[in-house]
């Protein structure tokens, strides 16, 4: 069953890869280039999952998560952060902001789907 996933990353390469993998698995993917873009695209629409990068211009992933967790519609939506292995502090920051989990870049398509399954019913 397809999920509606919002993928937020300033790198188109990453968006492409996340998007391709999830769409291939039958999910619907909305892409956004940064936090502000994501909030704009999301509005009051529910999604089943949000995958976001941390380092982004304008509004970074941490700020985005905080915004989302403060939003009555998105407060209980699972959020996965995309991090790199050197981002440990960022990962913790993401968690503190309210992220559900994380995926380490680079990831294999299988791994991505596995983690998605982990947080989405």
């Amino acid at each position: 069953m397809g999920l509606r996933v919002l993928a937020v990353d300033d790198s188109k390469t990453m968006r492409d890869m996340v998007g391709f993998t999830l769409r291939n698995a039958g999910h619907e993917v909305i892409e956004a280039g940064d936090g502000e873009d994501a909030l704009g695209k999301l509005g009051n629409d529910r999604v089943d999952l949000i995958i976001t990068d941390i380092n982004m211009p304008r509004m970074d992933g941490i700020a985005l998560i905080k915004e989302l967790r403060a939003h009555h519609i998105h407060k209980s939506t699972p959020i996965l952060v995309l991090t790199t292995e050197s981002d440990n502090s960022k990962k913790n920051e993401g968690r503190a902001a309210g992220a559900t989990g994380w995926i380490v870049k680079p990831f294999s398509p299988d791994k991505l789907l596995q983690v998605v399954a982990k947080v989405c019913p």
Binding site: D10, S11, T13, M14, N55, P57, S86, K105, P106, F107
Partner: peptide, 28 residues
Amino acid sequence: LHAIFRCVHSIKGGAGAFNFTGLIEFSH
């Protein structure tokens, strides 16, 4: 500084995906 960091970070992110080891190592 953030902007510069993001650039290198994104390059590294993609390099990781494609396993360009040299690029990964140096960008890191």
